[in-house]
Simulated scan of single mutants.
Amino acid sequence: IALPVSVCAAIAEVGCAAAALELIENPHAELAPFSWDRIVERHGHLAAIREAMLVLDDLPSATRAALVAKLSETLAQFVVARNWLSADRADRITIEARDRSTINIAARSRGEDMQGLVHHLRVTGQLTAGLILRALLSSNLDLFDAAL
Score class of each variant (00 low, 15 high):
residue 94 T to G: 11
residue 94 T to S: 15
residue 94 T to N: 14
residue 94 T to Y: 03
residue 94 T to H: 12
residue 96 E to T: 08
residue 96 E to H: 11
residue 96 E to C: 05
residue 96 E to W: 08
residue 96 E to Q: 14
residue 97 A to R: 14
residue 97 A to V: 14
residue 97 A to S: 15
residue 98 R to C: 14
residue 98 R to N: 14
residue 100 R to E: 15
residue 100 R to G: 10
residue 100 R to D: 12
residue 101 S to F: 13
residue 101 S to D: 14
residue 102 T to I: 15
residue 102 T to K: 07
residue 102 T to R: 04
residue 104 N to A: 13
residue 104 N to P: 00
residue 105 I to A: 02
residue 105 I to E: 00
residue 106 A to I: 06
residue 107 A to Q: 13
residue 107 A to C: 07
residue 108 R to N: 12
residue 108 R to H: 08
residue 109 S to Y: 03
residue 109 S to I: 01
residue 110 R to Q: 07
residue 110 R to H: 12
residue 111 G to P: 04
residue 112 E to G: 04
residue 113 D to T: 03
residue 113 D to C: 10
residue 114 M to D: 01
residue 114 M to F: 03
residue 116 G to M: 05
residue 117 L to T: 02
residue 118 V to K: 02
residue 119 H to I: 12
residue 120 H to E: 10
residue 120 H to A: 06
residue 121 L to P: 05
residue 121 L to F: 09
residue 123 V to E: 07
residue 123 V to I: 15
residue 123 V to P: 00
residue 125 G to N: 13
residue 125 G to D: 15
residue 127 L to Y: 01
residue 127 L to K: 00
residue 128 T to I: 11
residue 128 T to F: 11
residue 128 T to A: 08
residue 129 A to G: 07
residue 129 A to I: 12
residue 129 A to E: 14
residue 130 G to T: 10
residue 130 G to K: 04
residue 131 L to K: 06
residue 132 I to H: 05
residue 132 I to K: 07
residue 132 I to F: 04
residue 132 I to E: 13
residue 133 L to G: 05
residue 133 L to A: 12
residue 134 R to G: 00
residue 134 R to P: 01
residue 135 A to F: 12
residue 135 A to T: 09
residue 136 L to Y: 10
